[in-house]
Write a protein that binds this DNA or RNA. Structure first.
Length: 152
DNA sequence: GCCAACGTTGGC
DNA sequence: GCCAACGTTGGC
């Protein structure tokens, strides 16, 4: 059982989009970064919990919780020439890119902004608050998970 | 919209 | 295999 944080732009796919999906479940496609890919492919397990983070918006921060309901499998958008995420190097037999399925669990009672997270000494070593971090999927320690929830 | 930070690409 | 150029991310 692991904890994660996943970033998404609310204008593109926000927490309310996830909540509105059939079965409140959606595949998390389009990750095209090897470090994030490795976590999707190798480490994320069914039952893992995910902080849903809104990035590239007015108030970036954690807005909800989701659960991994299918572990890593081939990201089919890499094989779709019409997709923004098309990568001709990825094939059915040898996929390069992976995705997981996540299901909406709940929204937080209030959004916890990046600004607020940065002010917490307990979170000083989490990758999220480190400057210049661009990972769209990152691990959260159990201690960090509990602490962040205690801010809610 | 700016720009710092970072990852990827490709020439050599 | 180095590294400059380029593209992207994402906070501000």
């Amino acid at each position: 059982m692991n904890y994660w944080l996943m970033k998404s732009e609310p204008d593109v796919f926000g927490i309310d989009h996830l909540a509105g999906c059939p079965a409140q479940t959606e595949h998390w496609d389009g990750v095209r970064n090897y470090q994030a890919r490795n976590m999707l492919r190798d480490q994320m397990q069914v039952g893992d919990l995910v902080f849903f983070y809104h990035s590239n918006c007015k108030v970036p921060g954690i807005v909800g919780i989701a659960e991994v309901v299918r572990s890593g499998y081939s990201d089919h958008t890499a094989r779709d020439p019409r997709s923004n995420y098309y990568d001709p190097k990825s094939t059915e037999e040898r996929p390069i890119w992976f995705m997981v399925d996540i299901r909406f669990v709940r929204k937080l009672e209030r959004n916890i902004s990046l600004e607020e997270l940065k002010q917490q000494p307990e979170l000083s070593s989490t990758p999220l608050v480190r400057r210049g971090n661009r990972l769209s999927v990152m691990p959260i320690s159990p201690q960090e998970w509990d602490f962040i929830l205690s801010l809610e």
